[in-house]
Design a binder for these strands. Structure first.
Lengths: 244, 244
DNA sequence: TTTATAAGTGTTGTATTTACATTTTTAAAA
DNA sequence: TTTTAAAAATGTAAATACAACACTTATAAA
């Protein structure tokens, strides 16, 4: 089926070529990039400027290269297209329907990423065709990308309930209201304010600052920061689970 | 890097070859096959009879073919090596470390499978090199297979707490004690007998038969079957969640 | 007839979750 | 300067879920 270049210098073990009769495939990564602007959950999409499906909305993606693993490929794709690195990424699922991409047989590994929209005001984003959509108002996507987003939302919901990943979506300093807005967006339901604050406080991993955010109310709202060291120490020492 | 045969008859869309400069890889599936013998959780492993790592214990696996998706590949691998089909399978994670397989750059998609060891007494298993190990006594595996098993166990634990997948590991008729043994194996902890039975009964998805299993006690233990229709109707009608 | 063994069965205390309303602070407007 | 408007801050009681716990029953085998 394929002729392989057994001398390819990138793979020092190529001489141990035990599997040479097997079919090879193109492996892509696609990133579901979630953002939060202190009000609503967003998703970053691009308008494809190449075939197939040129002009339609799609996830950001790219192909795995010979010299990197999938996590690295996801980081590279994200950095290339948004200029951002040091972003929370997690693999979700691998999609392999035979005709999922009409261009060529392609298997795609989906990742989701979490970004604070405001702190990372990448100037206009590298690609002008990229746009933040409110998660509730995102357009139809190409291929099986809608299914990827559906699964990513479910995963985010599950993770957010048991791991402190929500803080990846917030600025370093945030108000309780913003934290609650975030959880309401992720869980897609209203939460009781007092119960939410009591729950968060009982976890005992936030530091309340003396500083207030005066931008939204007369009274002002105290700012908090996530105490990552304290959280990690608690996990380490007594198997603490961050549970909303 | 690779020369592609653009006329390959297997892919009718090959003429739309938009991505031809990209690297291709071998995609494998590896199956973590869990079994249960009414007492303990088991894992099915094979002694590799080919290089590399010939003679060492490994998961059962194979390569994705051009005309199938990953789920189909996993079913095929499972059926080829055990003779079993119609088995519960779930994709877990995709592994891509560059040198994970010294034979050649290979990316592997891990699946786990659930089998009732006794009901599927495949005669000696297709491959004589295959063996059921108690999950607590399994040997070291090749490559990153240990990591795959670790993740599969975690996934199984999580799933078993919220979905009725445990019944995939039991014969059609089972006793409460066997069900409890199963959950104790999966969760790796002892459960209180009365609390467990009360919990299961409150879920109201088992049918208690008039029949008893007399093989283990003088008194005999009532047999139960999982009422799948009832479960599905409950899920459908009021979003019921099977929660242990 | 006795014995040995697993099966079967409920209650009570504890912890967690949910429901719910008033007061406080302060900038802006009057 | 006083008033007003709007979000922030705060605690308790009821309901539910979870955890701990021990004796009686049925039956085959001795």
């Amino acid at each position: 089926m394929f002729e392989e270049n057994l001398e390819a210098p990138e793979n020092p073990n190529m001489h141990l070529n035990y599997y040479q009769k097997e079919d090879q495939v193109l492996l892509a990564v696609d990133c579901i990039i979630f953002g939060f602007d202190k009000e609503n959950l967003k998703i970053l999409l691009i308008k494809r400027n190449f075939e197939p499906e040129k002009g339609k909305w799609s996830l950001i993606g790219g192909f795995l290269k010979r010299d990197e693993n999938l996590d690295e490929a996801a980081v590279r794709v994200l950095e290339t297209l948004t200029g951002l690195n040091d972003i929370y990424l997690e693999q979700i699922h691998t999609y392999s329907k035979i005709d999922r991409d009409p261009g060529q047989r392609t298997i795609s590994v989906a990742y989701y990423a979490l970004i604070d929209v405001d702190s990372h005001r990448f100037d206009g984003i590298q690609i002008d065709a990229a746009h933040w959509f409110d998660i509730k108002e995102a357009p139809e996507l190409i291929f099986d990308h809608n299914e990827m987003v559906r699964k990513a939302k479910a995963r985010l919901k599950r993770r957010a309930l048991t791991k402190p990943i929500g803080f990846e979506l917030l600025p370093e300093k945030f108000t309780m209201r913003q934290l609650q807005n975030l959880y309401e967006s992720i869980l897609d339901k209203k939460l009781d304010k007092r119960n939410f604050i009591n729950k968060i406080n009982s976890l005992d991993v936030l530091i309340k600052l003396d500083e207030k955010d005066m931008s939204v109310s007369r009274k002002g709202a105290y700012l908090y920061v996530f105490d990552k060291d304290k959280y990690e120490k608690k996990v380490e020492e007594d198997g603490f689970i961050f549970k909303i």
